[in-house]
Structure formats: structure tokens, C-alpha cells
Amino acid sequence: MEIAIDYASAVWQGAGIGRYTRALVRELLRLDRENRYILLFPAGLPGWPAPFLDHLRTLRDMRPDLRLRPLPLTDRYLAIFWQRLRIPLPVETLCGRVDLFFSPDFVLPPQRRGRRVVTIHDLAFLVYPECAVPRMTWYLHGAVSRAAARADLVLAGSESCRQDVLRFLCLPPERVVVLYSGVESYYRPLDDPARLAEVRRRYALPERFLLTVGTIEPRKNLPRLFQALSTLPEGIRLPLLVAGKPGWLYQETFDTVERLGLQRWVRFLGFVPDEDMVGLYNLALAVVYPSLYEGFGVPPLEGMACGTPVLTSNVSAMPEVVGDAALLVDPKDPASIAEGLRRLIEDEALRAVLRAAGPERARLFTWERAGRQLYELFRRVLGQK
């Protein structure tokens, strides 16, 4: 069977859905020797190439039969072409006949025939529309609803996300299944003093600090986290490092630091590459992630995999992912967040329990498991036995 995959996010996005797509497709190609695969992606323009193309060589070495279909445009232009202008150019025109098309990034292109599978990572734009740019909410509502209606199978990032899909998009329950993400094996407790010392030097890290990770946007709830931090007595308060680049509607986040006088206590690191993130997780006293809503929630899982105590929200997918291996708080209540911070900072016994429980919980979420489940789902959709 011929299976084509929308690989745009994998070559244009370093984290988030880009990382999800690279890891999931890697494991799928390693496991499935029965079907033939085509990766369709916008490779960029002259002087503006896609930034994450190098790993394709590794995929071709692993699967010499893998076919690549690069397009001479950017991911933005491709989205405009298919989703905003809704140009009815079928995907078969670009990659030939396919038996199944898989999109790991919310939307589907026009397609004449064959099966369709799409991943919907979350419905934040419907659950928390105030946390998104209105034009983007309007676009996603239309494009994601159309993709879900056309798909033979929708993959949800968690059971929490699945319930949101059923509620908001009104799909039959049998067409929506949970496919959990994994955590890369290099997220682990490090016993490498030289490597840790180099990360500490590179980022001028204090001896003890808290870490939060993610794109800076309203859903990450950083203003309430800063408010909680500001209420802790200075005798126990720790510096908070924010690893992640600005996304959208982020000005309130920066203004809150100024308004609360936390310039000494909050540092914005910008985007941090994976090889340094492992060190940051290991060096942090705790990972704090009081997000308002997640379809899965990768940073808490990465922190737990590294053996670092985690504080996260008691809503949406977070309890489902972390289980009993993290400290849960009410993300809408700064007092609840502050009490959680205080407990993690002061209670060494609690931190020891979470350090032991985190890696064990994280081992439940592997990309090999996700790839195998996706392979079996493809076989089911294609009617293979």
C-alpha cells in the first residue's frame, strides 16, 4: 500500500508538532516494512530553505525505498494555498496515487480517493478562544472541523483531548482514538558532572532554580505563575527560568514581571535546543507547568523523565499524563500555585518521592510504542490483517 505523510511540520518546526512528527514517523518507518511511504513537504524557497531538512538523510539511510516529495515553497504558503484559499488541487497531483494520507498537524489537503488519518493535538482554540489570536481561531475552527469531518480516523493526544473532539466536533466515538506522544530516550537523569557544569556555565545558572518550559503565550499561564512566585517570602523564593520563545499575545507575560517587580527573579532564556534542555531539566530544583489547557503536555513528561520534581495543573490532559508522579495545583488560583511552589522548595522528602516516581511514569510513554500503535491503526484503516 502507498502511504503519504504531510511532513511540513517536521522540516519547519524545531519543537512541538515538529518534534512529534519527526519522532513518530521515524518509529513508523522503522517498524512498518510492509507499506511504502512518501513524505510530502514544502522545502522552502531560494535563500529561505526549511530549517530542519538534515535528518531526512538518516531516514533515507534507514529506508532506501522512502520517497521524498519536496515542494518549492514555504509551509506558510502551502497552508494558504490549501487551507485559506482552499485551492482544490488534490494531493495525488503532487505524490501520485495513495491508499492512505496521514496528517500529523490538524488539517488535511484535498484528496480524490484513499483513506485519511489526522492528528488533532488539542482544541485550545475552542476551549480557550481568548488565548488565541481571533483570526487564527476563525481559521482553525474551519480547517480543523473540515479535516475531522473528512477523516476516516482522528488521533487525539490524550483521552482528555478525545473528549474535547467528541464534544466540540461531534464525531462518532469509534472514529476518534487516543495516540499518546512519547519522550525521547535522551531525556533521562544525567550522571555527567562535566556536561552539567557546561550547561550551568553557558546559561549562567544559579545554584538552585525553578524551570518552566514552553512557547510564551496566554495558555501557558505565566502571569499567574509570576503572581504566585511574588507571594513567596524572599527567604524561600527561588529564581524562575523560562525556556521558550515568544509566541503570540505575550506582552502581558513580560509586563507582569515588571508590574510585580520580579526582574531579579525571572529570566527569559528564549529557545533552548534539546541537548541543553536535558541539562536544564537535570539542574532545576523543579519543573513548574501550571498551563490552563493541554492536549498532552510534553514538558512535565520530559522533566519527570529526567528525574526532576514536577508541578503541573490538575486540569485537561496533565493529570492523565503525570499520574501520581507530580504535584497538581489549580492553575487559575495563584494561591494554589504558590502553595505548591512552597512545598516543592521546602519539602525535601516530597522532592525525593517525585524524583523516584517521575522516570518510572515517563517510561510508559515511548515513541516506539506510539509508532507501533500508529502502524496497527493504519493496518486497521486499510483493512490489512
Rank of each mutant, 00 (worst) to 15 (best):
A147V: 03
A147M: 06
A147Y: 08
A148G: 02
A148T: 08
A148E: 01
A149H: 09
R150C: 01
R150G: 02
R150Q: 10
A151R: 03
D152H: 12
D152K: 06
D152E: 09
D152N: 11
D152G: 07
L153P: 03
L153T: 07
L153I: 08
V154E: 01
V154G: 02
V154R: 00
L155N: 00
L155T: 01
A156P: 03
A156T: 01
A156F: 04
A156M: 04
A156S: 08
A156Q: 01
A156Y: 06
G157Q: 05
G157D: 10
G157V: 11
S158E: 05
S158C: 04
S158A: 09
S158N: 01
S158Q: 03
E159C: 06
E159T: 07
E159V: 01
S160L: 09
S160N: 04
S160C: 07
S160F: 07
C161A: 15
R162Q: 10
R162F: 12
R162A: 09
R162C: 11
Q163I: 09
Q163N: 14
Q163W: 13
Q163H: 12
Q163D: 14
D164V: 05
V165L: 14
V165P: 01
L166H: 10
L166A: 09
R167F: 13
R167H: 15
F168G: 00
L169D: 05
C170Y: 13
C170G: 15
C170A: 15
C170N: 14
C170V: 14
C170M: 13
C170E: 14
C170L: 15
L171C: 02
L171N: 02
P172W: 02
P172A: 10
P172R: 10
P173E: 11
P173A: 11
E174A: 11
E174L: 04
R175A: 02
R175V: 05
V176P: 03
V176I: 02
V177K: 15
V177A: 14
V177G: 00
V177S: 11
V178Q: 01
V178M: 00
L179Y: 08
L179F: 11
L179V: 08
L179A: 07
Y180H: 15
Y180D: 05
Y180F: 10
S181D: 13
V183E: 06
E184V: 12
E184M: 14
E184N: 13
E184Q: 15
S185Y: 12
Y186G: 09
Y187Q: 08
R188V: 13
R188T: 15
P189G: 04
P189N: 03
L190N: 03
L190M: 15
D192F: 09
D192Q: 08
D192I: 08
D192A: 09
P193H: 05
A194R: 13
R195V: 06
R195S: 07
R195Y: 15
L196P: 07
L196G: 02
L196T: 00
A197R: 14
A197Y: 07
A197I: 06
A197Q: 12
A197G: 11
E198W: 14
E198D: 12
V199G: 06
V199Y: 04
V199R: 02
R200P: 04
R200M: 06
R201T: 13
R202V: 11
Y203P: 00
Y203V: 04
Y203N: 00
Y203T: 00
A204F: 13
A204R: 14
